[in-house]
Design a protein around this nucleic acid. Sequence first.
DNA 1: TTTATTTGTAATTTGTATAATAACAACAAA
DNA 2: TTTGTTGTTATTATACAAATTACAAATAAA
Lengths: 150, 150
Amino acid sequence: MKISTRFSDSIHLLSFIVVYKGKIPLTSNTIAGSIQTSPVMVRQLMSDLRKAQLLKTTHGTPNPQLARPAEKISLLDIYLAVEKDKPLFEIDHSTNPDCIVGGNIQPTLEQFYQQAEIAAKAKLAQIKLADVIDTIIVRQTEKEAKKSKG
Amino acid sequence: MKISTRFSDSIHLLSFIVVYKGKIPLTSNTIAGSIQTSPVMVRQLMSDLRKAQLLKTTHGTPNPQLARPAEKISLLDIYLAVEKDKPLFEIDHSTNPDCIVGGNIQPTLEQFYQQAEIAAKAKLAQIKLADVIDTIIVRQTEKEAKKSKG
DNA sequence: TTTATTTGTAATTTGTATAATAACAACAAA
DNA sequence: TTTGTTGTTATTATACAAATTACAAATAAA
């Protein structure tokens, strides 16, 4: 299986819109150039983000906008928008039901995996898109300062 | 199913060994029958678990044994043994380095993803193989009680 | 109004990670 | 010595993410 980068690409996409708004035209093509993916993938992700009410887009015009401030969009909001209910830990649903272990393992693991998944998602809920953008800007500024010095 | 179930299958495997020890021969074939996978997959998982010092096996003889009590084996021990350093959230490593976002997104996400991953792994560290086995036994007993009543 | 550009979406193809299968050497026990 | 098992590698099959292709619908500029 190819590993999904939809979550990371969606954070990238939303950050790009905020950082480059008003500076360059925000077409699916220019965004795809930064993520290095296809424009179709960008539009598919934007479609999911729009359905989750995180993004506003206009059919025909390249002008995507955040539906609310970056301080009010968490990484969990984005994760749920594009990865839906994909589990963090995969349960094997095809086991022998006539076996003591095989017949009881799924609901058992479900319960324990849930604890770990909730812990991870709680952290994602605390981290905002604004935190990601701030970090990107700081890193870029540091990069430029180092460059002009050396 | 092509999504990896190595973690779940490994918990299943170890639970099976504890539950059925001394009752049926613990060959890779009988274990595979419960997980509904191939005997080769079972031996590959046992190989990883052995390298992580969670399991003891003997070449040629079907007699796998836990290397330490189930109370002292955590789900995190098992996860690390068979999934190694596989990230919980996948970073897109191919982005445009000449873009403010594309050039800084990886270390930024790495940092935030780490927080969520640590939270999940901390939970997995708290859950022991013994907890899983206890739950399986309770569920099986409840199932049998209901059956004999109805 | 016409033309060019873009979004939005579906269908198909391609690439790749995972598991199944096949094959066999090394070892153990009857 | 025979049979059965573990341990390992190589090959094939399968599932799914992403790329590609295609095109309708919307927008904006000429």
